[in-house]
Computed example of a mutant assay.
Amino acid sequence: MAPSAMVPVVQVFKRDAPGDWWPEGADVFQLVWCPNSHWDAPAPHADVSPVIEVRWRRAADVTRVLAQPPKPVRHEDDGYGFSPRPCTLTPVHLTDFPYPDELPEEFPPAVRRLVEETDPEGDVITRVAGNKFGGGPTWHLTEPTEFRCRSCDAVLALLFTIASHSTTGITVGRWGDLRIFACPHDVGHGYWFDVH
Rank of each mutant, 00 (worst) to 15 (best):
P84H: 00
D153L: 05
R74V: 13
S151A: 08
T171E: 09
L94I: 11
T95I: 10
R74W: 08
F160N: 04
P91Q: 06
V111S: 03
F97C: 09
T95D: 09
P70T: 02
F82K: 05
R112N: 06
R127S: 14
Q68R: 15
L156W: 02
R127E: 15
H165M: 02
V172K: 00
T90R: 13
F82R: 07
G173C: 07
D101E: 10
D61K: 08
I162Q: 01
P70F: 00
A163D: 10
T145L: 14
P84E: 05
L158R: 08
L66D: 06
G173K: 07
A163Q: 01
R127F: 04
P86L: 02
P91F: 03
V115T: 10
I125C: 06
F82I: 02
P91A: 07
V65Y: 06
E76V: 05
T90V: 10
P70C: 02
R57V: 00
E117S: 12
S164K: 11
V73C: 02
P109F: 13
P100F: 04
H165G: 02
P98W: 06
T171R: 13
R64F: 10
F147I: 03
P120T: 02
A110F: 08
F82A: 11
E105F: 11
D96R: 05
H140W: 11
K132A: 15
R58H: 01
D119F: 07
T118N: 03
S166H: 08
E116G: 01
V92A: 12
A67T: 12
A157M: 00
E143Y: 10
C152W: 04
A60E: 04
R64P: 00
V111G: 13
A157K: 14
F147G: 04
P98Y: 03
